[in-house]
Design a protein around this nucleic acid. Structure first.
Lengths: 226, 226
DNA sequence: TCTAGTTTATGATATATGTCATATATTTAC
DNA sequence: GTAAATATATGACATATATCATAAACTAGA
């Protein structure tokens, strides 16, 4: 068992600073796990016992806030290092992680990561950069939502899946209207109504979860001008 | 010039891992600067040339988003390390920093920090923890705002300054109604109206910027139940 | 195949929030 | 100290958004 997977972003981005001895130690303790869509494989409140990396698939970060409201924090692709947001700050996870599509997760020994930080300065620097960029991205998306109207919020979700995940004009939304509501802070009915309005205005076509973007400039203009 | 300031959080929290030789090198290049209230000492888009730490005072992080809207990201006390959110992720700042009260900032050579990360593993680990906790706090506040009504949003601002900054029932708000609007995503008029309503309902007393909390439980209940 | 549950959808209506107008109070610039 | 700018405040009104009700479409499981 090693880390020689061809498409592994960890290798490309994260461990360019690791020498082959370190890589062997690191990957010797690696476990690869396939997570079926819909499975919650990290639970808010659980003790952090390992370092998890999304090798393939699509996941959502979500939490229950102090008032008991369910809330989606962000959506993640293999470019994101699933468990890095909490791992060095807290003993337990402050969010849950659920697979939206069948996903592959690599599970590493957390002590080896911590030892690497201490012994390999370049690794530490790369980890800090990667972590910073990932959390800046999440924060920026969250801040965007605060100041936008329901149209801007829903447009931002559609554009996110188009521009960051699927890259095509037509795609199947991997989340329900209810999840869009949990992400944007809108009510379900408002989300559905805005989608219907986008459809009536010829911005998108909708067939259940299937979305086809017809007027991308129009959507972007709505997103930008709230 | 050294780092022997008695109340320095950097020493207590951040540099417990630094030996005296490293401390000398680190602090030899330190510059201390007094920032008058209202001064913007980090500007969004500026190249990151130094590592800045808030020794004393109160600051706000703010940005102009892609659509050109002014937005306040968070408020910071000396417990926050001002420039760590961007420093290892980007070449330039993605936010501005302005003093809300007269503040003292310690400015360190950024290359020395980067060298310390590479040569001192414990320092690197402490930096990662500190940074994680700070950005988790900011994100959590931002997520809280997304799902709350105007009452919850304004209550959260009042409770923040009471519980995190001044600790007394009576205090002077360090920000204007307009800034509360920029932080919460509400309009100025809505912020003013909600504050007036809290006053009429006997939750707070208001004399311009002066706030006195009369019914803290009531405020917290509003915050929690939206 | 049927039933129960969930998801999507829409209308009617109530409430929350924004916009525009205006007035007073406060701060800033000269 | 005065004028101009900014901040606070409130009313009237328009628009955005939530809530409640209902129904059709779509799953999941027996």
């Amino acid at each position: 068992m090693n880390c020689s997977c061809e498409n592994c972003h960890i290798q490309a981005i994260f461990f360019k600073s690791i020498n082959s001895d370190e890589l062997d130690e690191f990957c010797g303790a690696r476990v690869e796990k396939i997570i079926p869509a819909g499975t919650t494989f990290i639970k808010q409140g659980d003790k952090i016992r390992s370092f998890k990396y999304l090798k393939e698939g699509l996941i959502k970060l979500h939490r229950v806030d102090d008032a008991g409201n369910k809330q989606i924090i962000s959506f993640g692709t293999p470019m994101d290092f699933v468990s890095i947001h909490n791992i060095f700050a807290e003993e337990t996870y402050s969010y849950s992680v659920t697979a939206l599509e069948t996903s592959t997760v690599c599970i590493f020994n957390i002590d080896i990561i911590k030892r690497l930080i201490k012994t390999n300065g370049e690794f530490a620097e790369n980890l800090i950069s990667t972590k910073s960029r990932a959390s800046n991205r999440i924060l920026s998306n969250s801040l965007d939502l605060i100041s936008k109207s329901m149209y801007g919020k829903v447009a931002s979700v559609i554009l996110f899946f188009h521009e960051k995940i699927y890259f095509t004009m037509g795609f199947d939304l991997p989340i329900s209207r209810k999840e869009i509501a949990e992400y944007t802070g809108l009510s379900i009915e408002t989300v559905i109504r805005v989608i219907s309005e986008f459809r009536r205005d010829g911005l998108i076509k909708v067939y259940g979860k299937r979305i086809e973007i017809i007027d991308k400039d129009g959507l972007m203009s709505i997103y930008e001008h709230s």
